[in-house]
Design a protein around this nucleic acid. Structure first.
Length: 227
DNA sequence: GCATTAACCACAG
DNA sequence: CTGTGGTTAATGC
């Protein structure tokens, strides 16, 4: 039997750890690992969905061009993460695009094989379902928050999100532009710039081009909560 | 009415 | 890609 490198993969999503050796081999024979550089498109809105993409390492954005042809950012996420898993049982095309924000390593996994595993291994399906549900809940919260909070609340929330969930540091270098942040919260890049500038002048954060440092976390949280 | 908020535009580093 | 200033429309008090 040929060597299966998936068996030794140390970047496995927890659900993959549940699979048996033969299931891993099946996966291995139907996947391809690809590296993407910053700003390369991983999946394109409108293209046919033949694979689910598992992000092994890196940071990506999911974005969708809406009816007025303006682009909105759905989510900024980092590994471990799935792209296109929602599309697996829906249409034959991707409903949104995904672009690497940092150098990213992904695995393309054949959709049919993944479906097969979901059918045959209940525990695996359970883990994947849990993942999809969590992702959905996050999106619901994001959706409601961005509609109800006003500008400063949205920007404060985004800064906290980036610090806590993406970079996991209070001092980080942005891998997104201000336009990206604007697209994420449904505002204009000018407003994001002004809000960051205001926070900076008020001593809540330190802004130096792409570098952001949180100085007064409790106040930032307050602004995020009050909106 | 007047103040505030935020979007849009144009222009400049 | 960003920051700034001016303008305008909508909304709140």
């Amino acid at each position: 039997m040929s060597y299966c490198k998936c068996l030794d993969c140390d970047n496995k999503f927890c659900a993959f750890g549940i699979l048996s050796k033969s299931e891993i081999r099946l996966l291995c024979n139907n996947h391809a690992e690809v590296k993407f550089k910053k700003n390369e498109i991983i999946i394109k809105q409108g293209a046919l969905t033949t694979n689910v993409v598992y992000i092994k390492s890196g940071i990506v954005k999911e974005h969708m061009t809406g009816p007025n042809k303006k682009e909105e950012i759905l989510q900024i996420a980092k590994a471990p993460f799935f792209l296109g898993i929602h599309s697996i049982f829906s249409d034959r095309v991707n409903h949104y695009s995904s672009t690497a924000l940092e150098d990213t390593t992904v695995c393309f996994i054949n959709s049919e094989i993944l479906k097969k595993l979901l059918k045959s291994n209940g525990e695996f399906a359970y883990q994947i379902l849990m993942y999809v549900c969590k992702d959905q809940i996050n999106n619901f919260h994001h959706c409601v928050n961005k509609v109800q909070k006003c500008l400063h609340g949205c920007v404060a929330e985004t800064v906290l999100y980036l610090a806590d969930k993406i970079y996991e540091k209070d001092h980080f270098r942005l891998s997104v532009t201000r336009s990206d942040i604007a697209g994420l919260i449904g505002t204009s890049r000018e407003c994001v710039s002004r809000a960051l500038m205001k926070f900076s002048n008020d001593g809540i954060i330190n802004v130096n081009n792409k570098h952001i440092k949180i100085l007064n976390r409790s106040l930032l949280q307050k602004i995020s909560e009050v909106g």
